[in-house]
Amino acid sequence: MNKPYTTIIIDDEAPARAGLENLLKSFPETFQIIDFAQNVTEAKEKIILQNPDIIFLDIEMPKQNGFDLLMQLETIPIVVFCTAYDQYALEAFETNSIDYLVKPVKLDRIKKTVQKLKTFHKNKSSEDILNVLKEISSRKEIKKMTSITVKKNDKLIFIKLDDIAFFEADSNYTKISCESGIFLSTESISSLENKLPDNFLRIHRGIIINKDFVNDIQKYFNSRFVITLKDKKQSSITSGRSYNVAIKEWISV
């Protein structure tokens, strides 16, 4: 019997690391989790020190992303990307050296990764993989975040962006207002703004709305707007003056 693949999970979100760990524990004959990392610097050190067989790697992380990590490694392990974005040139990952999982990752999808590993032959060199990554980076594919992960008590909850009416800053955290209730994300609102797709718009220093939830917009004094949403509470939000131009561009006033 073959030994399980020594595995490092790399993701900047603790709930995502924990969720993936729980999924991989269902396959002890395939994966032996030896460590975790939450950023590129930490991951590079641990990969060089421990030389894992395989890494599960989030693409989008603060400061440096998953591609940046791989480009810093002399020897690249087997890579399984885990990300909330689904437009990173999927065809580039359809090789025996790279697999690609879209969050929220499901158990059935991990089963497919396990099956792929059973017939795996590492026939791609690190140089070949880096060439693929450089090609992907040069294409500047549009990022499309489809969901966000939050932790509530001991549960991981995956919220579809389509169900979110707006985000609201709360100190160093962000409140998520959606049809199923209010949730708290550990990400700052500025970090989220950089990741969200085009149907989300920042209208205030502390608020990002889902434009698909907008019911009506009224002009307000001091170059501001009052925006009413189609959520259950029919939330009414007043925009900030400094976001006047962005809102006008959107509604073409």
Rank of each mutant, 00 (worst) to 15 (best):
L49Y: 07
A16Q: 05
Y85W: 07
Q50I: 00
I217V: 05
F31G: 12
K233W: 08
F200S: 06
S147G: 02
H121W: 00
S252K: 15
L156V: 09
R109G: 01
M71V: 04
L201Y: 00
I157N: 01
S97C: 12
N210A: 04
K155Y: 13
T30Y: 02
D198W: 05
K112M: 08
K46F: 04
S242L: 14
K25G: 04
N2W: 02
T146P: 02
I251Q: 01
A18C: 11
I136S: 13
K219Q: 15
Y220V: 07
L117C: 05
D170W: 11
A84C: 09
M71K: 14
H121E: 14
I237Q: 02
C178Y: 11
I217H: 02
K63R: 12
F67C: 05
K111E: 11
K155H: 14
E135F: 14
G181H: 09
E60F: 02
V80D: 09
V40H: 10
D163E: 14
K46A: 06
I9C: 12
R139C: 03
D12H: 08
T7L: 06
M61S: 12
S137W: 06
D35P: 13
S188D: 04
E29K: 04
D216Q: 11
E135R: 15
F158I: 00
V150Y: 06
N194Y: 01
V79P: 00
I129G: 01
R139M: 15
F221K: 09
K248T: 15
L229Q: 05
L101A: 09
A92H: 10
I48K: 07
I54K: 00
I8C: 01
T228M: 10
N215H: 10
L184P: 05
V105E: 02
Y220M: 11
T238M: 15
L69M: 01
Y220T: 06
S171P: 05
E168Y: 07
F221W: 05
I33T: 11
S188F: 09
C82D: 01
W250A: 08
E187C: 10
Y100N: 09
N172H: 07
I136P: 12
A16N: 06
T6H: 10
I10E: 00
D162K: 03
I189K: 03
I47A: 04
N22L: 10
N22Y: 07
Y100L: 07
K106H: 03
Y88M: 10
